[in-house]
Amino acid sequence: MAGDMSFETLALIGAPPAMQPGGYIPEAYKARQQAGTPAVDLGAKQQGDDWVIELRWDCPNPVKTVTGETDLFTDAAAIMVPGTTSAPWLTMGAPDHPVEAALWRADQNKLLHMRAEGLGTMHRSEPPAPWSTRSAWENGRWHLQYTLVNWSPLNQFQRIGVAIWRGENQDRGGLKSVTDGWITVK
């Protein structure tokens, strides 16, 4: 998609089920320690206050639609940014230390803006109108390009976290593959 963008490969870790709220997920998924998606290629380019960020990752069996089914989970990805200098990434923020995110789902044609101050507190809302994504699945890989216009915490901190949900793996919520910490983008 972005011909003039350089990419780096980031290793992903499985978000620890043990951290999840409630009693069920930590116990039922305790065997799930590996990242369902072990790596993602990241490219980022800043143009003034706007960013183009592209993610590419292996996904041999994509789940692009879940319409009319009870047991399917869609492929998805999110770019998360800290709202304060000390907002923790793994817990999706903390009280008074929010994070924001831009969520893409393969089964929907729109982005969602998210804000959280800790696990289980994620609130979804409509994103700013100029935000957009382009996505394509080719040769067993997802190619996803975000255009993020004037996202102030991204401009301020220039750090992101990436999360990938692999639908085939029944990833959803806190069951996901994530970067091991904040990644600095320039």
């Binding site: 069920y24 879940v66 009319g68 089914e69 009870t70 047991d71 979804r124 959803r172 919520g173």
Partner: peptide, 20 residues
């Protein structure tokens, strides 16, 4: 609710449903 369906999984009576 975000439709994660852990509740559907966990209920041993399978009396939680998912509005698809």
């Amino acid at each position: 609710c975000h439709g994660y369906r852990f509740c559907v999984e966990a209920c041993p009576y399978k009396k939680m449903y998912y509005d698809y």
